[in-house]
């Protein structure tokens, strides 16, 4: 834990050093707003499924918050460390590098809360009809589901980064992964608007639990039963991703020490 705090502290200082850059990064997350604009014009003639215009606004503003709170980009750093060989230094320390990358991935989050908190209050004032449940229990569930989403996304990206032990360009896998994530998580289109069969399949895959699930929690669209099952599936995916990650890590290390650091 002390190691995590030290690593986090260093990354946090990087964030402070580059606070303007972080704000710009936050502003570049515009995909939900573009989707929102498109759906608003479609929904002008009447609701789409169970989504009317205000539901779309609630959905995509929530998606914007979730993306900011769970998005991470440390794979770029991993990639360069692997290719330039500075990963060797991490392997020579008595600490698993996962601690470093996790701290690095989390370090911008407090900064984002600091900006998104007030922004959300403004949103609630501007759109009095916003369907966000902001009672303490819903917020607690929302934050819990954000933590699960963050862990799944971290472990997915870290595992993809580790494929760099075998192929030099893990970033291209990451691009393919992002495409899948955008479609299957509800980031582009609410999962409720998919045909029921597809929707049911997507409910079992990990992607929903990185985006749509927290968004639906915040919007109060889920029954108690759906919430309990959702949290269970989410944390099963966290455990499965962790197991997969450790397996890939051990194999990758063996390969790294065989073919050259």
């Amino acid at each position: 834990m002390r190691r995590f705090i030290a690593e986090f502290g260093a990354s946090w200082n990087l964030i402070i050093e580059y606070r303007v850059m972080v704000v710009i990064w936050m502003l570049t997350i515009v995909l939900p707003l573009i989707m929102l604009a498109a759906w608003l014009s479609i929904a002008e003639k009447g609701p789409v499924g169970s989504y009317d215009r205000m539901t779309f606004i609630s959905y995509y503003l929530a998606a914007l918050v979730v993306r900011n709170m769970t998005g991470m980009w440390f794979i770029w750093e991993m990639d360069s460390e692997m290719r330039l060989g500075s990963l060797s230094f991490r392997l020579l320390k008595p600490m698993d590098p996962i601690v470093h990358y996790f701290a690095y991935a989390c370090s911008s989050k407090p900064f984002r809360v600091f900006i998104l908190g007030p922004a959300s209050v403004v949103a609630l004032l501007v759109f009095p009809g916003l369907n966000w449940s902001v009672d303490p229990l819903s917020l607690l569930l929302f934050v819990t589901s954000l933590a699960g989403a963050l862990l799944i996304l971290f472990l997915m990206q870290y595992t993809i980064g580790l494929t760099g032990f075998w192929i030099t360009r893990s970033l291209s896998i990451n691009d393919a992964w992002f495409f899948t994530y955008s479609l299957a998580s509800g980031y582009l289109v609410p999962l409720d608007l998919f045909p029921p069969v597809i929707r049911d399949v997507l409910w079992l895959l990990p992607f929903r639990y990185t985006m749509s699930f927290p968004v639906e929690l915040l919007m109060g669209r889920l029954s108690v039963r759906e919430i309990v099952i959702g949290i269970a599936i989410q944390w099963i995916w966290v455990a499965a991703m962790y197991a997969l990650n450790r397996w890939v890590w051990r194999r990758g290390l063996r390969r790294y020490s065989a073919v050259g650091a």
Binding site: A6, A10, L14, K93, P94
Partner: peptide
């Protein structure tokens, strides 16, 4: 790279306990 060396020392201090 982007921080003073003293930051790296603090990290190493924690890593090596």
């Amino acid at each position: 790279w982007d921080l003073p060396a003293s930051e790296s020392f603090l990290v190493n201090r924690a890593v090596y306990e």
